[in-house]
Design a protein around this nucleic acid. Structure first.
Length: 488
RNA sequence: CGGGGCGUAGCGCAGUCCGGUUAGCGCACCUGCUUUGGGAGCAGGGGGCCGCAGGUUCGAAUCCUGCCGCCCCGACCA
């Protein structure tokens, strides 16, 4: 059967959902707003997770695990924080079920009401800082550099697989430091780690910047963000790193004695990326034929397809190539399923985004070649058997680089400087992408622009020269340009 | 939470307006044969509380009432 994917030009949102479903990444579940991550989708997340975990360890962090449930009272200790999350929390009120006296299955046992309700964590700052209070006494206990891999729940109105679901997987780093400078450096360091991960592994260039007061994390002093651009011209926040100042330390009374025996509040950061990155990956590279995966995150990097079906001669060569490539660390699959025809397999592996496909048929055997097809450019070539291994190794690198290059060009073409509000609207409504414009620095203007155009300030880019000008909406003076876009 | 749409086989749908044999089609699945360099062909076969609960009727997928769920679009958000 031809598995039809809605073309991007027709309906980008449906195209995205088709890819997620037909490439076998995730299914809708019986639970509203929650998805089932299927093995293939989870394999991609695992690759991301393993790589990120390695990078966290390299920067001195260790993993730990904190409770799923947070006492309600904890959330109200930091006023801005509770403000940010209160509207989307799942609340546990009882701890027991009982048989319905009327015979309708089970019901909540009213006598099992919790004295203090528990909140399913939307993020773990509060439970963690409540714990850190006991762990930190002296400057010798600092810095405390901890990460946790966990699920969190945010009761969203509208959900989309990977991009926004009620429950999602993520990592959250929570660190404590003796000085403001050190905490700031940590927040920026992890910001860099995220940006590097996105570029090197997802092959997705990101813009590093800081959030405006309006857009920053509830409870943070500063929020650093990485912003990516999707194919449809909308921006996607791919990760954030927060400098929390002493807000949580004060709320949870976390103090340490410095070397002069003086008590001080600690300085904090938190930082996270989520399974949303899987959605970002999909929307960054894929095409109307299906998923396109960067080799570094592809669960299967190379697939070998026998044409038209396995035979002793084909098997022999395939097994040899498989062994050789596997020894070099490449994940290879030899598809020996003889109930499927080659054409079906080609389409299927293209749907799944496998970067490189090797085809071996009788004609190839006679000529001593293998057909090598690359997913990113959809091209094929014949390569002599004894060169296949090196060729594939190089090709994987080339594909990884090509994807990044391609996306970078698209992204750079979609950062448009504008100097009037008319231009601003024209670009936002037409071309899309990021709009670089002067802004007077007020939340009121930011909100007004959003109201008028649906575009929000994605970030104040870090690596950008100051340039004085006038606000695109109000004409008030502005010290630098900021990036606006419609966002996911 | 507003607006729109949809619940019939694993998936996609027709049938519903205007009630009437045994509920149908495509894909998928199973068996067999023939095929096989870009999603194979033929033949045979299995699979349905027609979203749930009431009601009207001799008779309900179809009409009425209530409920539940899902999707899309918006407001809010990683």
């Amino acid at each position: 059967m031809a598995k039809h994917i809605t073309p991007r030009s027709e309906d980008y949102s449906r195209w995205y959902q088709d890819i997620v479903k037909k490439a076998g990444l995730a299914d809708n579940s019986a639970v509203r707003g929650c998805m089932v991550i299927k093995p293939y989708g989870y394999a991609i997340w695992e690759k991301m997770r393993d790589q990120l975990d390695k990078m966290f360890k390299e920067t001195g962090h260790v993993n730990a695990y904190f409770p799923l449930f947070i006492p309600k009272s904890f959330l109200s200790k930091e006023a801005e924080h509770v403000e940010g999350f209160a509207k989307e929390c799942a609340v546990v009120t009882h701890h027991r079920l009982m048989n319905d006296p009327n015979g309708n299955g089970v019901v909540v046992d009213p006598s099992a009401k919790l004295e203090e309700e528990l909140i399913v964590r939307p993020t773990s700052e509060t439970i963690i800082w409540n714990t850190y209070k006991d762990w930190i006494q002296s400057y010798r206990d600092l810095p405390l550099l901890i990460n946790q891999w966990a699920n969190v729940v945010r009761w969203e109105m509208r959900t989309r697989p990977f991009l926004r679901t009620a429950e999602f997987l993520w990592q959250e780093g929570h660190t404590a430091h003796a000085t403001s400078q050190e905490a700031e450096a940590e927040a920026r360091q992890m910001h860099d780690v995220y940006a590097r991960f996105c570029e090197e592994f997802i092959a997705m260039p990101v813009i590093k910047g800081s959030k405006t007061d309006n857009e920053k994390f509830a409870g943070a002093e500063d929020t650093y963000t990485i912003e990516a651009l999707m194919q449809d011209g909308k921006a996607l926040q791919a990760g954030t790193s927060h400098f929390l100042g002493q807000n949580f330390a004060k709320a949870f009374d976390v103090k340490y004695l410095n070397s002069e025996n003086k008590e001080e509040y600690v300085w904090a950061t938190s930082w996270g990326v989520t399974t949303r990155l899987v959605g970002a990956l999909v929307m960054t590279h894929s095409d109307d034929e299906g998923l396109v995966l960067p080799p570094k995150l592809a669960p299967i990097q190379v697939v070998i397809v026998p044409i038209p079906k396995p035979s002793p001669e084909i098997d022999e060569l395939a097994e040899k190539l498989l062994a050789g490539l596997s020894a070099k660390g490449v994940s290879v699959k030899y598809d020996k399923d003889d109930t499927k025809r080659p054409g079906f397999k080609f389409a299927e592996y293209e749907m799944k985004g496998v970067p490189v496909r090797l085809g071996i048929g009788k004609r190839d055997l006679e000529k001593g070649v293998v057909e090598v097809a690359r997913r990113d450019e959809k091209t094929k070539e014949s390569v002599a058997v004894d060169q296949v291994e090196n060729h594939v190794l190089n090709l994987l690198d080339e594909i990884q680089a090509n994807l990044l290059d391609r996306v970078k060009r698209f992204r750079d073409d979609h950062i448009t400087e504008v100097n009037s509000f008319d231009e601003f609207k024209e670009v936002i409504e037409g071309k899309g992408g990021f709009v670089s414009a002067h802004w007077d620095g007020t939340t009121a203007t930011e909100k007004k622009i959003k109201e008028l155009t649906k575009a929000t300030i994605r970030c104040i880019p870090l690596d950008q020269a100051d340039e004085s000008g006038t606000c695109v909406l109000t004409g008030e003076p502005s010290a630098r340009r900021v990036l606006f876009a419609k966002a996911y």
